[in-house]
């Protein structure tokens, strides 16, 4: 069943289409939620709320091309995750102290030796502020201005959070490769 048929079935309220949609995208959406929240249980709660929201709103979704459904769903889960972070752990995670916006990051190591699950774990272990800005910049490809507007912070704060996130991740990857030589 392609995306178009899946959308059509869900719009008509067909339960098997709903289940098919869930089976097709749940793990990917779970990955997004975990990447933002860093917590499996919270991610599953968001997964539940997100799919309820999707099934309620799918009548307003207009299919354009293959991939548009996945992109639409990813946006919904990203927004849900950001909303959760805003209400919970993100409030006090942006320190006022400045940090070098362009930190020196040592990347003289082989990324291929680090499994994706480990990379994901490194991201999840980041402080909420670092993790959020890193996600928005790396995966949503948002500029610091856009991040600042989205999170209601200063651009400089966004830059310093990102620099700290990358420095931390670089250090973790370097240690991992060193330990697994």
């Amino acid at each position: 069943m392609n995306e178009k048929d899946l959308v059509s079935g869900c719009q008509q309220g067909d339960n098997s289409s709903r289940r098919h949609l869930y089976d097709s995208y749940a793990q990917h959406m779970m990955g997004i939620c975990y990447r933002y929240t860093g917590d499996v249980r919270t991610s599953e709660d968001l997964l539940h709320d997100g799919f309820i929201k999707i099934f309620e709103a799918i009548h307003s979704f207009q299919y354009r091309s293959e991939g548009s459904l996945k992109a639409w769903m990813s946006k919904i889960f990203t927004n849900l995750s950001l909303e959760y972070l805003r209400k919970n752990s993100l409030r006090d995670t942006f320190p006022l102290d400045e940090y070098p916006e362009e930190a020196l990051v040592d990347t003289e190591y082989d990324f291929d030796r680090v499994p994706p699950a480990v990379l994901m774990q490194f991201v999840a272990e980041l402080p909420a502020g670092y993790r959020t800005v890193f996600n928005l910049n790396t995966f949503e490809e948002m500029s610091h201005k856009e991040i600042a507007n989205r999170l209601h912070i200063n651009e400089s704060s966004s830059r310093s959070q990102l620099a700290r996130a990358k420095a931390t991740l670089s250090e973790k990857v370097k240690n991992y490769t060193r330990q697994h030589e």
Partner: peptide
């Protein structure tokens, strides 16, 4: 630095963009 920084971003994006996590 900028170049190195871009590499880290690209590597994470490439490996985690479509990362899937099992669901209960």
């Amino acid at each position: 630095n900028k170049k190195v920084d871009d590499r880290l971003t690209k590597e994470f994006r490439k490996r985690l963009e479509n990362y899937e996590l099992p669901v209960s």
